[in-house]
Simulated scan of single mutants.
Amino acid sequence: MNSTRHEQFREYVSARGPALLRAAVRLAGDRAEAEDLLQAALAKTYLAWDRIGDRAALDGYVRRAMVNTQISWWRRRKLEIYPTDQLPELPVDDHTRRSEMHDALGRALRRLPERQRLAVILRYYEDMPEAEVAEVLGVSVGTVKSTVSRAMARLRDDAVLVDDFA
């Protein structure tokens, strides 16, 4: 049974890994951190594999594990990160073939504070209702609404077209 479990998990990761990595990159804002985030979420998923009865819900389980892990990491780093008036130089991704608009949006999302970025990604990229975003982030629905509103205003100030989100 253990080899069957292992093979099922391997097939799942092979099939869904790229999509899950894209979600992790959006959550983490950095590819290296996203890979760590996905790996941590997949480890949790593997340990819970036998308890997950609905295999159609696996993506949701992994995404939830990524969000919870990201929040946990964010809380731990909260005291280590200090705001500054100057933004650091952003690394250039030489091997990307994304459009200029997609790149601009990615840069703008990375400039958002962690909670705003998570709220926008969950609300619009993952298409979660506000109540579900509030539950995942552990805040009220009103906090989600105001956080997303402030994030969208900041994105507009950065001259990023956000019409595709709405």
Rank of each mutant, 00 (worst) to 15 (best):
Q116H: 10
E89F: 08
L37Q: 02
A43N: 06
L42A: 04
E7W: 14
T96L: 10
H6F: 11
T84W: 03
A104T: 06
D54N: 15
K78R: 14
V13F: 01
K145I: 09
R98C: 07
A134G: 01
L122C: 13
E132G: 04
L58M: 11
R77D: 12
M152S: 03
A65S: 14
L27T: 01
L155T: 05
P18R: 06
R97S: 12
L87G: 05
R123K: 13
D54V: 06
L118Y: 03
G29P: 00
D164Q: 09
R98V: 13
L38E: 07
E100Q: 10
L79V: 13
Y61V: 15
G142T: 07
H102Y: 08
E100S: 10
I121Q: 03
K44G: 08
R64F: 03
D93K: 04
N68R: 14
A32L: 03
Y61F: 15
Y82F: 12
A40H: 11
K145M: 07
P83I: 09
K78D: 14
R75V: 07
A119M: 05
R51T: 14
T69R: 07
E33Y: 02
G106M: 13
I121T: 14
G138H: 11
E35G: 09
S146L: 12
S72Q: 10
A24Y: 03
T147V: 11
M101N: 12
L58G: 01
W73M: 05
Q39D: 09
R26H: 09
A15M: 06
R5E: 10
V136C: 06
A159L: 11
A43H: 08
D158K: 05
R63S: 08
Q116S: 07
T147A: 07
R31D: 09
A32C: 01
L161S: 14
S72F: 05
K145T: 10
D127V: 11
Y82P: 00
H102K: 12
L87C: 03
A166I: 12
R150K: 04
Q86E: 14
L37D: 05
D157G: 09
R111L: 15
V120G: 01
E11F: 04
L27R: 00
S99F: 07
D158T: 06
A34H: 01
K145G: 01
V133I: 10
A23R: 01
R150P: 00
G53C: 07
E7T: 14
R55E: 08
L47R: 12
Q86Y: 13
P83V: 11
R111S: 12
S99Y: 05
R64E: 14
D163T: 14
L118P: 00
K78A: 15
R107T: 08
R5S: 05
D93E: 12
W73F: 05
S72L: 07
T4E: 13
